[in-house]
Amino acid sequence: MPPSVNMVALVSVGRHPQSGRSRRAEQDGRAVEMGMNLSCDIDGQLSVVHVGDSKEPVLRQYAGMGLDALTVLEQDSGLDVLPGVVTYLKETKANLVLTGVRAERGESSGMLPYLLAEQLGWPLVPRVAEILSIKEGEAQVLLALPRGQRRSITVALPFIATVDNAAKGARQTAYGPGLRAQLNVVESEDNTDDIATSWDISPAKPRPKRMKVVKAKSAADRFKAATAKPAGGGGRVMKNETAEEKAQAIFDLLKQEKIVR
């Protein structure tokens, strides 16, 4: 009997923010982690798929998380990865796709999961923090909202989930298993990305920081704006006040910062 949940984690080559070197992509690693944990908890199996160069050393880092095998849809860089993935997912009868929100290389548009969802006609669950359960074809999912907040939703299989940074971090990669994992290389169709070929890609220019624009109506206002000390530049030190006054000052600042309302 085939497992009820046939999971596929799509992984890409990440980019370390400081060194620019290849690494496991932060969110893709979390997607694999989520898949591995799910396949322990429920009746399911996980396959990890990469589209690109099968000689990429980073694939060994993904495999080192404890994967026996990894599927590579062999393709040159700069080509459209979508058709190959769609074909693969249809062939393998996957019903849950886990992947990162945005790739760390290339265009990083984050469109791939949406295009997949559109082509397969599946719902897309964005920014997943945790898949709590999958029972009778329905999954209970926690979505990640800013500043650690969570939203609960339910969705029926099959679906595509993009995994947020708030999901459980990828486990450590081990050198030995990574080295020994099997790579199943599948030749993939070549589809040139026509639109992207016309783009001009250059190293990122630093963005100018927005200045505080002062719309002064009078010379005196302009003078004040130019010479005034930035507010709060010097810290205020309270020494001899009573404890109540000190606490009140702190509390006022909390209110002012809208930490408490």
Binding site: H16, Q18, S19, R21, R23, G64, M65, G66, R171, Q172, T173, A174, Y175, G176, P177
Partner: peptide, 30 residues
């Protein structure tokens, strides 16, 4: 434990990952 099981405790995993990706244990820009 590290090479086969990937079980370096606490900050170990992160430090090793940093060393691999940035050649220093804290992940600073090379």
């Amino acid at each position: 434990l590290t090479l086969e099981k990937g079980e370096t405790p606490n900050k170990g995993a992160q430090v090793l990952e940093n060393i691999i990706a940035t050649d220093n244990p804290n992940g600073y820009s090379p």
